[in-house]
Structures are given as C-alpha cells and as structure tokens.
C-alpha cells in the first residue's frame, strides 16, 4: 500500500513538473525570435507540441498567394502560365466540413515560409540560388513538377504572385520567379 502510494506521489510530481515546464516553455516560445525559442522550436520540438498563439498578429495575412508554372518546350518556345488554384472560394458548409482548407493551408504555409525567407537569402553572398535548397522551395517545386507536362524533355519554371483579395482590384505582384528546372 505504502509502495503504491509512493509511486503515485512520484508520478504526480513528475507529471506536474512536466506540465509546468511545458507551460513555461510555451510562454518563452511566444517570443519567436529569441534564442531559447529557436532552440526549442527547431531542435527539441519534433512533434510540434509547443504552440505559437499569436494568431493573425502582429501582421495579419492580407494577401492571397498564387502559384503558377510554365514549361520551356524548346529554346524559344514557352507554354502559357498555368495556375495551381490555392484560393478557391469556400462552400456554405465550410463552417462544419472544410477538407479544402488542408491543401490550401499547406500551400499557404509553404508559400509564406518562402516569402519570409526571400529577404534573408537576398542578403547572403550566394543570394537566391541558396533558396533552391530550402524545404519550402523544394515542396513548391515538387508540387508544380507533378503537373502534367507536354513532353518528357521540358523544363519547368514556377512563379509566386500575390494579390489583395476581394477588396482591392490591383494587379498581381511578383513574389518569386524560379529558374527553369529539369523535371
């Protein structure tokens, strides 16, 4: 009985300390550029257990991103630009059942990571060439390379553009134009 009680007390203490630590780390990691936050987020938290609770702040997402691609068929012959639709309108039932949000969110996350990285890579000596080795770039390239191609020998280029949604009827702005990739 005594042994069981002791085990329960020890377990209770361990779990309490764990939860307290988790809570403290969550607070620390809200400061997203701190050294501790970067360490826990990138080195420790492989399961994404430390949340970032700053929803839509400080900079609310006010742009729609567009992913387009085209093929270089011969040296002077290019296909039209094709858009991979990320931002289609939602259905009436989206408040309850919204499977479309998954691929929209994936591409939106990837594109936003890429957009965030671009200024950093521009500052570096090798410039945007290094961006091609980043995870978001590879995911976007992988996504566009899976689309149907006209012949086996084409190379493909993608473009990221942004628009201001419903409100402002402005022209899309270029975010990133990739080099042609052999696919």
């Amino acid at each position: 009985m005594m042994a069981k009680l002791d085990a329960a007390v020890i377990y209770e203490t361990i779990v309490t300390v764990f939860l307290a630590f988790w809570f403290l780390i969550t607070i620390v990691c809200q400061f997203r550029d701190s050294v501790l936050s970067n360490f826990f987020k990138h080195k420790v938290d492989i399961f994404g257990l430390i949340p970032l609770w700053t929803f839509f702040a400080p900079h609310p997402g006010k742009r729609d991103y567009h992913l387009l691609y085209r093929d270089k068929i011969t040296e002077d012959n290019y296909s039209e630009w094709h858009e991979i639709d990320i931002t289609e309108e939602r259905s009436f039932w989206s408040w309850l059942w919204n499977p479309e949000k998954r691929d929209k969110k994936i591409l939106s996350d990837v594109v936003q990571s890429l957009v965030t990285m671009i200024p950093t890579y521009r500052k570096e000596e090798l410039g945007l060439n290094l961006l091609m080795f980043s995870m978001p770039y590879i995911i976007v390239l992988h996504a566009v390379s899976q689309r149907q191609k006209q012949s086996a020998e084409v190379s493909r280029q993608f473009m990221l553009a942004e628009t201001s949604g419903y409100q402002k009827e402005t022209d899309p702005a270029l975010v990133l134009l990739s080099v042609f990739h052999q696919i």
């Binding site: 702040a57 400080p58 609310p60 729609d64 990320i86």
Partner: peptide, 23 residues
Amino acid sequence: AKLVSAEWRAGTAVKDVFSTKTY
C-alpha cells in the same frame, strides 16, 4: 500580439483578412 500591431490598432486588420480569398 494584436495590441502591438499598428494594423490592428488602426482598425484595418479584420477588413484586410476578410478581403482575402484564403481566410
């Protein structure tokens, strides 16, 4: 995080987010 954001304090953030097709 919203209080320290000029866009939220200016009262334009909700309009900007709602005007995107994404959200």
